[in-house]
């Protein structure tokens, strides 16, 4: 396995709008994520987490800065870069009349996966996410938990090197959330998949992630291993609150 980082972000800036209404959603973010990491990206609403993810995946156009996935520039060599990343977004960005099976089938097709290979992968994902009974049910009729599982299946259909999960357990009940955690842990530890996770459930971050960054007001304000965050017997949640409150105080001073 290569020692090169799977994701390198150098001075990413994203500005929405222009003139007086311009909003600097991401303001000089730089990150390096090691291959095989389970990386938690934390921050309050509007801090720049989703915008950073959008810039990595091609949903947003960076204003400036460089993003490389496995050494491939996401702007210059965007086609190659897209093959390396899978996204389960915060919002359900799907055709709500499609079934989970169709969502995975179409997504696999978009990634150029041949039919037989695609079929086999879909079957394994449907089984893994326990979607057998719901495979032909329209997305709009699924429960919140089933929708999340279908989104995860769609994100994994092309076996990406880097999996990005933006609030993957929002609206999922406790039991299903724990099932999902075990699956993600297995995906990271046994299959070596690099995962970036954003979540407002900080116990989820503490349980799953081995590296953590906090983004606030568009900037990375803290980054380190989970152990470094939890130094002194503090929980991730306690450290998160300390860091963001301190940063907000400094910004308002």
């Amino acid at each position: 396995m290569s020692d090169n980082p799977i994701l390198e972000i150098d001075n990413l800036v994203k500005v929405y709008g222009s003139g007086k209404t311009a909003k600097r959603a991401v303001d000089g973010v730089s990150l390096q994520i090691k291959r095989g990491a389970f990386y938690g990206l934390l921050g309050p609403n509007g801090a720049g987490k989703s915008t950073t993810i959008h810039a990595i995946t091609g949903i947003a156009q960076p204003t400036s800065g460089v993003i490389k996935i496995d050494g491939v520039d996401v702007v210059k060599d965007y086609k190659e870069a897209r093959n390396k990343v899978g996204l389960s977004p915060q919002e359900f960005n799907v055709d709500i009349f499609s079934t989970p099976e169709q969502l995975m089938d179409f997504m696999g097709g978009y990634y150029g996966i041949p039919k037989d290979e695609r079929r086999a992968k879909i079957e394994s994902l449907i089984e893994r996410f326990d979607l057998q009974k719901h495979r032909k049910v329209k997305f709009q009729k699924l429960s919140g938990g089933l929708k999340r599982r279908a989104m995860l299946g769609r994100a994994l259909v092309h076996t990406p090197d880097l999996l990005i999960l933006d609030e993957p357990t929002a609206g999922v009940d406790v039991e299903q959330r724990h099932d999902l955690w075990e699956y993600l842990k297995e995906l990271n530890e046994k299959e070596g998949k690099t995962i970036i996770l954003t979540s407002h459930y900080l116990e989820e971050i503490q349980y799953l992630c081995n590296e953590i960054a906090i983004i606030n007001n568009g900037k990375i304000v803290a980054e380190g291993t989970k152990e470094e965050f939890m130094k002194g017997g503090k929980s991730v949640e306690q450290r998160y609150l300390e860091i963001t409150r301190e940063d907000n105080k400094n910004n308002h001073a």
Binding site: T57, I59, M107, Y110, Y111
Partner: peptide, 18 residues
Amino acid sequence: YFMRFTRGIEEILIAPFS
């Protein structure tokens, strides 16, 4: 338009299409 409305267009944006 429907893809813009539902953000289903993101499926195409994140896929390897020139």
